[in-house]
Amino acid sequence: MAKPNPKGPVRTVNIYCAKCKTPLFKYRKGGKGALVKCFKERIVEDHTHTPCTCPNCEVVFARDTLIRGAPAFKMIGGKVTMK
């Protein structure tokens, strides 16, 4: 299977917790669709202390998984927002 391009897209988005609006990631996202997954190699800034958990309200917003052989976070619907 093909791995995602590690350099990836140039456009960055900020990802926030939907419940308390705490910043979680700055991520290089490709395309214009909804945020379904975050490849770990494309995360520019990580504001979380424990993986997949909001540092402020302790809500679990994603699951740790492998997608196409690359480590990624699979987002839970409605738990995160992006700008």
Rank of each mutant, 00 (worst) to 15 (best):
G8A: 10
K7E: 04
V10M: 09
E41W: 06
P4K: 01
R63L: 15
G8Y: 04
T12H: 02
L35K: 00
V13L: 10
K83S: 12
N14I: 12
C54D: 02
A34D: 05
G30D: 06
M75S: 06
G69C: 03
K83V: 09
V80W: 02
T12S: 12
N5D: 11
P71F: 12
R68Q: 06
N14Y: 12
K3Y: 11
H47P: 02
P4Y: 02
R42I: 15
K21E: 08
T65Q: 06
T53Y: 09
T22N: 15
P9Q: 06
P51A: 10
L66W: 11
D46G: 12
P71K: 14
G30Y: 00
K83F: 08
I43T: 14
G78A: 08
G31T: 03
T12K: 08
L24I: 13
K29I: 00
N5M: 07
P51M: 11
T48C: 09
H47K: 09
G8H: 04
M1K: 05
R11E: 06
V44R: 12
F73M: 05
G31H: 01
L66D: 15
K7P: 04
F61T: 04
I15M: 05
F25H: 12
A72P: 02
R11M: 01
C17L: 09
Y27K: 05
P51H: 09
K40M: 04
P4A: 07
E45G: 14
G69T: 04
T50V: 14
